[in-house]
Design a binder for these strands. Structure first.
Lengths: 215, 215
DNA sequence: GTTTGTTTTAAACATACGTTTAGGTCCAGT
DNA sequence: ACTGGACCTAAACGTATGTTTAAAACAAAC
């Protein structure tokens, strides 16, 4: 680790370890020893392990959501025509890549963390993320609604979560899948390529024919 | 709990708690006290917590995979025409429901566990599942390949994982989503309805136009 | 009724965890 | 040079975890 700042050193290591092993499975002792700082540093600088988790998310999620919101608002203000489904999904990708300065390693880690945020049942995390970033998400949903006006709202709701699932699930286990791809198909895969494949899949799913009433 | 058998009581409670909280977050003391058995019972009957986790998965995954394999083999043996993508996905659903005797509660729990199996980074679990049930999965992939013969193999590989992600992700956080749906849309959702919505989404995604070469 | 093997029990063990403490170090402001 | 505040450090605290032990309870076989 090259960063001399204790706080950033902790955040860097914690981010990587959380993404790799999960929150409960990563101890403060592992984080601090790997970061080369004292055990008590986490509690001193962040207050608790819980708040460290929040800080890790906030560090990349805040600039990401800010950038995304800016893009969405700009479009409305300038009176441009509505985005297509593809454009909206690509906007997510571009914004995420942009925020990480093209560093695909950290982008991948970020996606893994997002996956954990949903799948690890840490209620404090869901609350934190909802309160902090819920409004941007809702703004995005509004744009999706305009992109697929014929889709009943509840159908759209589900398909957004299906898409989210496909993305989060795939990218959060990206390293494993990359390995399988290498062994079984003798193919070398890139994160950018995977994401490029993801967009048409999700878009087609969003646009799929609405089945007969089921509930 | 009505079951007098210690082993089954443990499995029942462990299954529910693992699905609800995750593996690391669920202690043996919580499991055994809730099951009304002695703490040492887990180590006596299963050997270790790790092996208990395996046993929980094996209990429903083994009959599920056996039933699925039977269906797939029967089709080939009888020389029936190949399954469509939709039929294959629906077969998964039907088999899963069938194995749980229509008990949607346990079906839901089962899906949550599958989600955990992928997202919780317990390497022993992935190894266990791969060795034990990998062959059935590969057989299923073969059928999917026949259902979408124009799709390049690596493209199919990714789209299967996208679909898997959509399903696992959605169904593993099903209870949460159901709650949101109830609050925000004033809609009462069923597991069967969600699954019925999932199939066309995944099928459309599998069949989506192949993008230009990206890697 | 005794014996044999299985199952259950309460207690202890060793370890790992998050957190707190009290004292030290360092450096800018005066 | 001194002081105040921010930062760091080593050690300890209390608690929770998975696992093991040795004895007790039980049930079936003879």
């Amino acid at each position: 680790m090259s960063n001399p700042n204790t706080i950033d050193r902790i955040l860097d290591v914690a981010e990587a370890l959380f993404a790799e092993k999960g929150f409960t499975e990563t101890s403060l002792r592992t984080i601090t020893s790997k970061a080369g700082v004292n055990l008590a540093a986490v509690n001193y600088h962040f207050g608790s392990k819980t708040q460290l988790v929040h800080a890790v998310f906030a560090r990349t999620l805040t600039p990401f959501c800010d950038a995304l919101e800016k893009r969405l608002i700009a479009n409305v203000r300038d009176g441009d025509e509505a985005f297509s489904v593809e454009e909206l999904f690509e906007m997510l990708v571009e914004t995420a890549v942009e925020v990480h300065g093209g560093d695909t390693g950290r982008f991948s880690t970020f996606m893994q963390l997002l996956g954990l945020a949903y799948t690890q049942v840490q209620s404090h995390l869901r609350t934190f993320l909802g309160e902090r970033y819920g409004s941007v998400f809702q703004r995005f949903v509004v744009h999706l609604k305009m992109a697929a006006p014929d889709l009943p709202p509840q159908e759209l709701f589900w398909r957004i979560h299906f898409s989210l699932g496909a993305a989060v699930f795939t990218l959060s286990s990206y390293d494993t899948l990359k390995g399988i791809m290498n062994n079984d198909y003798n193919m070398n895969i890139t994160l950018a390529g995977t994401v490029k494949r993801l967009v048409p899949f999700m878009s087609a799913g969003i646009r799929a024919e609405v089945p007969a009433k089921v509930d």
